[in-house]
Design a protein around this nucleic acid. Structure first.
Lengths: 236, 236
DNA sequence: GCTTACTGGGTACAGTGTTCGCAGTGACGA
DNA sequence: TCGTCACTGCGAACACTGTACCCAGTAAGC
């Protein structure tokens, strides 16, 4: 029912804000506990359920108190995102660049499946500690490519964006498929109406071409196929 | 300062809602006029400036009246997004698949530069008329690839997602660059502190490798370079 | 032990998307 | 020709949001 702060280029990231002050009493809560509470809420009911009030209630305090730990709601989301990324384990150390990147991509996908609300948070302008760890492992995977440093960084940027992107498309499609009753039928009738209108000849052709049987299960792993193509293009 | 409805898989799209009712007096406004007003506001002050109240005021009515044309704010954004996409012109009809896709990509980038708020609107679950026209031209560009229909559709999905993605990264970087004073220095000191901490060896290596001079202008066309790689991977 | 900078949190504010209810209006069926 | 009835415009109100303010209490530094 509401909002994501539109792209403010830099309103101040959590990671440039000191966690504890030098003076004064010890805080009763912690960044980690706020993030945990937020993640639990988001996992259960989506990102919209993560309000200052709900998180405050979850840790047992009032809304205003959260601003002792965080300047803004967006910073709270930053905490949640990074803590979620902390679930990533980096087992594989050997193998080709391609294989290692693909493994990292699959880990990323699994993370997005566990915490779909991550896709609703705009990519953080400043990477947190766990994002940095992921970044470092991506760079490690590129060791053998011999690319210069800047190119490696750019490649990693494209790579993680691609992972996010494909996970997003995949999840969107699945979510849509679940309300198949309403969505699929509405979309289908809409599209056939559009196609029947006569414009969009290529769309018509693509849709009639090999019309898969309606009950058929979707292609098994769009993600793997797409990711393979992209990774190949990136390390080339 | 506020919100984007988190991914409701299908709350009902504008394009499955009848534009005019059969009975009753003629509406005083139109979808097009609402969209135009919203676009003007978004162009000038960002997507957050597009509130039901501001749009209503722009067309000279009260907030509640908008709900005669639109079920929800998200549907208003759908209208804006599709109307903006209507600015696209599709001149090129000949050439290789790669060239035609690259031309479409550049058009898309130009559109995102003109209306950056498009990047803040989640990709519509149901494509509007102008999105369909774009889709059709992408499919036309893939004519010579000989891919089956479903694969063509999938490819186009990846393609337009990639355009959006790269435009987004590019614009993010530019926006960040403008507040160079605050952002760059903060980020830089943060990263050097992180690197100095000793973990993240590969990050350290990539950053020290060929440290570009601080005043140097950024690489001219990240977009073209990245897009070329991706398109090549897609039509392969 | 005095100062100072913090912490907790109740209250309040400005602003949001959206609903309700009611008066007016115009196309359709008789 | 004339009711009927589904629509239209819209003022007022609701529920809820993120956040600022304020004040009492608390612990570290000189």
């Amino acid at each position: 029912m509401f909002a994501v702060t539109t792209h403010t280029p830099f309103g101040g990231s959590i990671w440039t804000r000191p966690e504890r002050a030098a003076r004064g009493p010890a805080p009763e809560h912690s960044r980690a506990s706020l993030a945990t509470a937020g993640i639990a809420l988001a996992d259960a009911e989506g990102l919209n359920a993560v309000t200052m009030r709900s998180v405050a209630a979850a840790v047992g305090t009032g809304p205003a108190s959260l601003y002792r730990y965080v300047d803004t709601r967006a910073q709270l989301l930053e905490l949640m995102a990074d803590q979620a990324r902390g679930e990533l384990r980096f087992d594989r150390t050997g193998g080709s660049s391609t294989d290692r990147l693909l493994a990292l991509a699959r880990d990323g996908r699994a993370l997005y499946r566990r915490h779909p609300w991550l896709l609703d948070i705009p990519a953080d302008p400043v990477p947190g500690p766990n994002a940095l760890a992921f970044l470092d492992h991506c760079l490690a995977a590129l060791r053998d490519t011999g690319l210069p440093g800047a190119a490696k960084l750019e490649t990693v940027g494209l790579f993680s964006a691609a992972v996010r992107l494909i996970a997003q498309t995949e999840l969107d499609r699945e979510r849509a498929g679940q309300n198949a009753a309403q969505y699929q039928s509405d979309l289908e009738s809409y599209l056939t109406r559009v196609v029947a209108a006569g414009q969009h000849p290529h769309l018509a052709e693509a849709m009639t071409d090999v019309p898969r049987p309606p009950g058929a299960s979707p292609q098994p792993d769009v993600f793997d196929r797409a990711m393979t193509r992209i990774v190949a293009a990136l390390v080339a």
